[in-house]
């Protein structure tokens, strides 16, 4: 078993633990074991975007420092964690930022740099498609619209794939026997955290996205982001699946209920 340093994040541990279980189960089949980073804390969930905002870089960088004690590569399942960590790491590529943050956090060792993977680019670049395809025992008879959302594709510097023409999800889905329909509104924002302040925005956006998927003859949406999943499943009136659950199901390591709107 190869060990992989793993950052779970708040939502995977709190409301979406099932997707972690699915992921652990299918990664085991592929020969990988998740090693959770010790004492991890919240990543901050959204990247601080003002130039003088050093304070909000501390949470992601502290977690990356905790990771570098065991590995210079880190895996996360959550799109928002992925985006925040990648942008925090980019921020630290600037020598001035690096010096300031390292000086400020004098109780921690200096940050040296951690390569952050999302489960999608991990499966593509580290595991490899062939290995995944070899482990499929049950092909899924589904037509899906892969939903990439915002955080995997923007900004360009952290995009896991071509921004305007992503294909990693379709490539993985095809190994499972799932046909992908036109991407349509695949990278349209679902309304994100507005769900707590003005859910009507999220209702409208989610329904636009699922209507588009239906018009493209999809049976379901497939995604990886826990916040998109919550919004689209709650308001979209359409089946929404985690890609990880589909992989685990087609590997025969979990049994997923298909057909309903429930995931």
């Amino acid at each position: 078993m190869k060990k992989v340093a793993y950052y779970p994040g708040c939502t995977i541990k709190e409301t979406d633990i099932a997707v972690e279980e699915s992921t652990k189960a299918f990664l085991k089949v592929l020969g990988y074991e998740l090693e959770e980073i010790e004492n991890w804390t919240c990543c901050g969930t959204v990247f601080g975007m003002t130039d003088d905002d050093l304070y909000h870089q501390l949470a992601p960088i502290r977690n990356l420092i905790r990771c570098q004690k065991i590995s210079n590569e880190m895996l996360t399942l959550c799109d928002m964690c992925y985006n925040t960590f990648r942008r925090a790491d980019l921020f630290m590529k600037d020598p001035e930022s690096m010096e300031k943050i390292n000086l400020f956090m004098d109780e921690e060792e200096d940050y040296r740099g951690v390569e952050v993977y999302h489960i999608l680019d991990f499966l593509r670049d580290v595991v490899g498609y062939k290995k995944i395809g070899d482990k499929v025992v049950e092909k899924l008879d589904l037509k899906a619209m892969p939903y990439y959302g915002c955080m995997l594709l923007r900004p360009k510097e952290v995009a896991i794939d071509e921004q305007e023409n992503p294909r990693v999800m379709q490539d993985i889905l095809s190994l499972l026997g799932v046909e992908s329909v036109d991407l349509g509104l695949t990278d349209e924002c679902c309304g994100s955290y507005h769900v707590l302040e003005d859910p009507s925005i999220v209702r409208r956006k989610s329904q636009e996205i699922t209507k588009n998927a239906k018009e493209n003859s999809a049976d379901c949406l497939v995604l990886t982001c826990p916040l998109c999943r919550y919004n689209l499943a709650k308001f979209g009136d359409f089946p929404v699946y985690y890609l990880e659950d589909l992989i685990a199901h087609s590997f025969g390591v979990i049994k997923l209920e298909m057909g309903g709107g429930e995931t």
Partner: peptide, 26 residues
């Protein structure tokens, strides 16, 4: 502040990252 945090209703299935993002932005 843009919102009063006490007015935000968090249910059992609300993903924590929705709350934290809203807190950070609002």
């Amino acid at each position: 502040n843009h919102v009063d945090l006490k007015a935000i209703r968090v249910e059992d299935d609300t993903p924590p990252l929705a709350f934290i993002s809203a807190l950070r932005k609002y």
